[in-house]
């Protein structure tokens, strides 16, 4: 257990020090959200309506962009081989790395989202709902994305391929995240229904991501 907590501390240190790029994702998120009104026009009613979707798309892209270094840095410096040979189960190692990665890059997105929601002219209820769905949904994106990161670990320019591989798999998270966020302000569906499914998807990807990611890492080393 102590090995895993040491790994978590190491990952956090690496991510938050100079050159770790933890806040780069949040910055990218800000820019994506800022660019949207230039595209669709400054109509505040429209922005309020599509706000949750924009925040979700921004968070999705920011998560994907930061994921390609999840295992690659370890592979480059040889740390991955040590982890593969170590006693800790690889699935748990992947899980811990994902959690650390989410804490360093996903959590800032969640914290930044209420401020960006104000730019989108969203109501307080919608802001709260969107932030809550992002809090539950972004870990799912990280876990699913870890599969892509593990599959493309040996490729020099895996970033774009990673996005192509992972985006179809994130469709359910996206659908239920945005649905829950809009259900909070619009009538027909209660908030709890899509939100519980979103939470279920998060838990499910928490199992699937580490198992598939670990399998991919094992075979990448062959």
């Amino acid at each position: 257990m102590s090995a895993l907590s040491a790994l978590f501390v190491r990952e956090m240190k690496l991510a938050t020090r100079v050159g770790g790029g933890a806040l780069m994702g949040a910055l990218f998120f800000l820019i994506v959200v800022t660019v949207v009104p230039f595209g669709v026009g400054p109509d505040l009613n429209l922005l309020a309506r599509i706000g949750p979707a924009i925040l979700w798309i921004g968070a999705l892209l920011a998560t994907l962009l930061s994921l390609d270094r999840l295992f690659q840095a370890d592979r480059d410096d040889g740390g991955l081989d040590l982890v593969l040979m170590g006693e800790a189960p690889l699935e748990l190692v992947v899980l811990i790395k994902c959690l650390a990665h989410w804490t360093a890059t996903g959590l800032p997105l969640v914290i930044a989202s209420p401020m960006l929601a104000v730019f989108m002219n969203m109501e307080p209820v919608a802001i709260g709902a969107t932030t809550l769905t992002l809090l539950v949904g972004t870990p799912a994106l990280t876990f699913v994305g870890a599969i892509g990161a593990a599959l493309t670990v040996s490729l020099r320019r895996g970033g774009l391929l990673l996005a192509i591989l992972v985006l179809p798999l994130t469709v359910p998270v996206m659908i239920f995240g945005v649905s829950a966020a809009t259900a909070a302000v619009q009538e027909p569906v209660p908030f709890a229904t899509p939100f519980s499914i979103l939470a279920a998807l998060g838990l499910f990807s928490m199992v699937l991501g580490p198992i598939a990611g670990a399998a991919a890492l094992r075979h990448a080393g062959d």
């Binding site: 599969i147 798999l169 469709v171 359910p172 659908i175 239920f176 899509p194 699937l208």
Partner: peptide
Amino acid sequence: ILTLVGVVNIPIIKFSVDWW
């Protein structure tokens, strides 16, 4: 590995798209 991950995910995608 990606194919098998897809197998697990395709029913979920189908279900969520139906819901959406």
